[in-house]
């Protein structure tokens, strides 16, 4: 359980990173959000066998991590946390798709392996882009940017509350689990008989809390809209950032630079 608690503290650490003060941190969250969205969409839009075409996209996380002064090792560890999901999505491909696609001398590489590689690269790119966005911007600012860009308010409010009370909920759950652990001596695993009422009680407590929070909000004039005073400013730097990166992504999407470079090199060599 300590593991889960620590995991959540690490989510908090992403937010701490967002308090940094680099030029990238200071950019309006909308610019970063837009660039990240274009990035993710272009990365996933590639054909399933694309590997070399994805290479230029590694520039984006690389530049942002170094210019933003983010701890690469920490972000990479976060990536590994979610890696199993991508692994299980892709792992069947080498067995299902056995047609040889690439010949490297005597070695034939099947389409399955190529698409598996492609999936893992896309996973790495998209998830790291999202993590970097949060680490450079902070979760709440991302939500605010979403709202300013026209996401319906209920979604944004849900996201904000999810994030705010995640910590309260985890703390509450951790307290219950600890209380149970202190009085059970039969080993580490929790029998289902204990687990079910524990989760049920957590739900009831959560409902109670939700009611109190709702009351607190009503007391302060809540009418379904969350209003926030934020000094958002979409200026030249923001435009340059969003437009510059988007243009780069689009060019790299429709124009296979590594392939062209390869042809060029072969021609020169020839």
């Amino acid at each position: 359980m300590g593991g889960i608690e620590n995991g959540f503290l690490e989510i908090g650490r992403l937010d701490t990173l967002a308090a940094g003060d680099s030029a990238l941190h200071r950019l309006d969250p909308r610019a970063k959000l837009l660039a990240t969205l274009v990035f993710i969409v272009t990365v996933v839009s590639f054909d399933k066998y694309t590997v070399s075409g994805l290479a230029p996209f590694f520039l984006y996380p690389f530049v942002l991590v170094s210019a933003g002064g983010l701890p690469a090792g920490f972000l990479f560890k976060k990536l590994l946390w979610v890696a199993p999901f991508a692994l299980f999505i892709g792992i069947a491909n080498p067995f299902l798709d056995r047609d040889v696609l690439i010949h490297l001398g005597p070695l034939g590489i099947s389409g399955g392996w190529v698409s598996f590689c492609s999936i893992m690269m896309r996973f790495f790119l998209t998830v790291s882009a999202a993590l970097i966005l949060i680490a450079l911007t902070g979760f709440n600012s991302v939500c605010m940017a979403l709202e300013k860009l026209g996401t319906p308010a209920p979604f944004v409010v849900q996201l904000l509350f999810l994030y705010r009370y995640l910590f309260v909920l985890v703390e509450e759950a951790a307290r219950m689990v600890r209380a149970r652990a202190l009085r059970s001596f039969s080993g580490r695993t929790m029998p289902f008989k204990t687990f079910a009422p524990l989760v049920g009680q957590l739900l009831l407590r959560t409902l109670d809390r939700a009611q109190r929070i709702h009351l607190a909000m009503r007391c302060r004039g809540f009418d379904g809209r969350v209003r926030v005073l934020s000094p958002l400013k979409f200026g030249g730097a923001e435009l340059a950032f969003a437009a510059g990166w988007s243009a780069y992504f689009l060019v790299m999407r429709f124009f296979d630079l590594p392939h062209v470079l390869g042809i060029l090199v072969t021609e020169i060599m020839g």
């Binding site: 009370y165 009351l215 607190a216 209003r227």
Partner: peptide, 28 residues
């Protein structure tokens, strides 16, 4: 009638203290 709740976690629901304190005035 301004109400201060027993558990401040119920009352502080916004991302930052500033936003939280501004919540009421903005709604008004």
């Amino acid at each position: 009638v301004g109400m201060v709740f027993q558990d401040p976690d119920d009352q502080l629901f916004m991302p930052t203290v500033f936003d939280d304190v501004a919540f009421g005035p903005l709604n008004l």
